[in-house]
Design a protein around this nucleic acid. Structure first.
Length: 278
DNA sequence: GAATACCTGAGC
DNA sequence: GCTCAGGTATTC
């Protein structure tokens, strides 16, 4: 599932292949993935040139030559494919062609949780795809991180996953950073020392950067815009490793459910931060 | 703040 | 043929 590092890898591999190109046509076969609707999306980005690419959290943002924006959220299984002809795979829902007749951009999404959105201006971008989204997690200062999380009463894992608090962290990097920081997923930020949150900040930055360096984590068949998988899944310490020995202390990794999400942790290394209160 | 709905493929 | 996976919007 694409989280911040995976989306950034897609952006980096996509950018050289779309920058400066003029969109010719947008064809949508699954209307709900095109926002506000297939017609507006096609009319909005049609004839426009991609002027720049950016990312905020898990959202991919293309700035167009008239000051409008084209955003892509990959949801859980979204994938962008650049190819000269339609790939022989199922679930391609939107096709973007360019006026140079070169490779087309295919949006594939088996689980249909993603979206492609047209925003007429900066205000529409803020009010739409970026609404309720906190600051980007990558590169956030320790002070800002502590300020954003500190004092909250929810479970630490839930807070990390809350895109309003900080944008970009999903289930993989939440579990991995909590393990690295030695904090229990059920602990509450309000019960933690500033030093604990500081350690979590450092762990999160470290794990996001390491994942980025290795092309992201390829679970759910993630691949970048060039079709290449990442390798960071091999470095996961706890995520989806229930029953396997913790790489630090050899204690078996446990799995619980927090905020409706499977959560993996080492009961020994992550006793820090408070024994879970019911 | 927490549960539920949306989806389909992978893995039993 | 059933269960589970999960990002986000919605609902209680």
């Amino acid at each position: 599932m694409p989280e911040l590092p995976e989306v950034e890898c897609v952006r980096r591999t996509l950018e050289p292949d779309v920058l400066g190109r003029r969109v010719a046509r947008v064809r949508t076969t699954l209307p709900k993935l095109a926002r506000p609707n297939p017609r507006s999306l096609a009319r909005g980005i049609g004839r426009r040139v991609v002027a720049d690419t950016a990312r905020h959290g898990k959202l991919l943002i293309m700035q167009l030559d008239n000051g409008s924006f084209w955003t892509i959220h990959l949801g859980m299984t979204g994938q962008l494919i650049l190819a000269g002809s339609r790939p022989q795979v199922k679930h391609i829902h939107i096709t973007v062609s360019f006026d140079d007749g070169g490779p087309r951009l295919y949006f594939r999404d088996p689980r249909q949780f993603g979206a492609m959105t047209y925003c007429a201006d900066q205000e529409a971008l803020q009010a739409g795809p970026l609404a309720n989204m906190g600051p980007d997690a990558l590169g956030m200062s320790r002070a800002r991180f502590v300020e954003r999380l500190g004092g909250r009463g929810g479970r630490l894992k839930s807070v990390l996953l809350d895109q309003r608090v900080l944008a970009g962290v999903g289930n993989i990097y939440a579990d991995e950073s909590l393990h690295m920081a030695g904090l229990h997923p059920l602990s509450r930020p309000k019960d933690l020392a500033t030093e604990d949150l500081g350690r979590l900040h450092q762990a999160l930055q470290k794990v996001l950067r390491a994942a980025l360096k290795r092309g992201g984590s390829s679970v759910s068949n993630f691949v970048d815009a060039h079709g290449r998988p990442g390798t960071f899944q091999h470095a996961h310490r706890v995520y989806r490793r229930t029953g396997e020995p913790c790489p630090v202390c050899r204690q078996a990794v446990e799995r619980i459910v927090v905020a409706g999400r499977s959560t993996h942790f080492c009961p020994t290394c992550q006793a820090g931060g408070v024994p879970p209160q019911p």
